[in-house]
Design a protein around this nucleic acid. Structure first.
Lengths: 193, 193
DNA sequence: GTCTATATGCCGATAGAC
DNA sequence: GTCTATCGGCATATAGAC
């Protein structure tokens, strides 16, 4: 399933809003149907199960972030610029759709939904692969420190994750992109030679 | 509550085991009572609610990690050694009790249990404060890069978190302490001048 | 497509016998 | 302290009228 009806899109967006404002725990068929002003039974006209809704969210996430990544990878920029573009692109993406934060940073939440987990895992993994290629490229260009590329990946993405976690903890109360830019400047100092 | 009966300790440990093997979703009074071979009603002789069990887990976490941290802080080591000791100490701690991983890295999971969240939040926050003091100390000693201490904290602890997440994803199938040591060597290169 | 009504199951928690 | 039995609540999902 890669094409959705308008109602389906409405449901997916509502689910993302509920997740980001009230937490995944409160995403039930009931809260979802109330959100878009229909009764709970009506939801099942559009999705055959709650699991299918979650899987659709995973597909939405994949579609919207793969686009960002492909744009970056196909550019002929130095490795470090690619990493920066990804780092800040993610900040922008999260700012625009807060629901995606939870989708991406929730290893436990969706336990039990294998289709969902598999898709998220694949997506994150392919991103990781491409970023590590950019790191290797940067090392070859003599700009990045010569450490295990995977370790550099962990430092950069781990820092981003903590920033986003703090942002959520602060109820999205600061400008993620602005703070992301500051953080990136610090990280750049660390990873550059 | 800071002292527990044997049965209570048994229940707390069982809960941690269930969380680490089957996920927090499957921690119910029923799975818990089955795990230690009593009926569900019997649990309520030892804890008055499920919430109280979770809060006890938070207290257990606090007790076991504060001890580590105090030992480190009171030492007269250079700042960077303190950070290293904390980093590897955490790896060791998680290796010894896998349940603690989920306790620490689960912003969402325990939503709804305010007592739990508050305690975990306080604990993590006090650790962060002490670590940042160690970073500032290291910068004064001229050993660590002169960037925003908070950003260095995020890079180091974020990387640790991703390592631990990978460890869990691999079903604890590699030696966390060993991989942690490798990761630390890389991080040391990044943050040192 | 949406409504109301309902089936089914699991959850946390309690009562009372032993 | 543990047992069995049970309550009330809420979850997903279905059936049938409109």
């Amino acid at each position: 399933m890669t094409e959705w009806t308008n109602r389906q899109k409405e449901i997916i967006n509502a689910a993302l809003e509920i997740i980001s404002t009230m937490g995944i725990q409160n995403l039930t068929i009931k809260t979802l149907s109330k959100w878009i002003n229909v009764t709970d039974g009506a939801i099942y006209r559009h999705f055959k199960s709650k699991e299918e809704i979650l899987t659709s969210i995973a597909e939405f996430f994949k579609a919207s972030s793969t686009e960002l990544l492909n744009r970056i990878v196909s550019s002929r920029e130095p490795g470090i610029n690619k990493i920066k573009a990804f780092f800040l692109g993610r900040c922008r993406q999260f700012s625009e759709n807060r629901g995606l934060v939870l989708v991406m940073f929730s290893e436990d939440i969706f336990k039990g939904n294998e289709a969902y987990q598999k898709k998220i895992y694949e997506t994150i993994h392919s991103h990781k692969k491409l970023l590590i290629e950019a790191i290797v490229q940067g090392q070859k260009e003599g700009i990045l420190e010569e450490i295990e590329p995977e370790h550099m990946f962990m430092a950069v993405m781990g820092a981003l994750r903590l920033l986003v976690t703090r942002w959520r903890g602060a109820d999205f109360g600061f400008d993620l992109l602005k703070e992301g830019e500051k953080l990136w400047k610090s990280l750049e100092k660390l990873i550059s030679i």
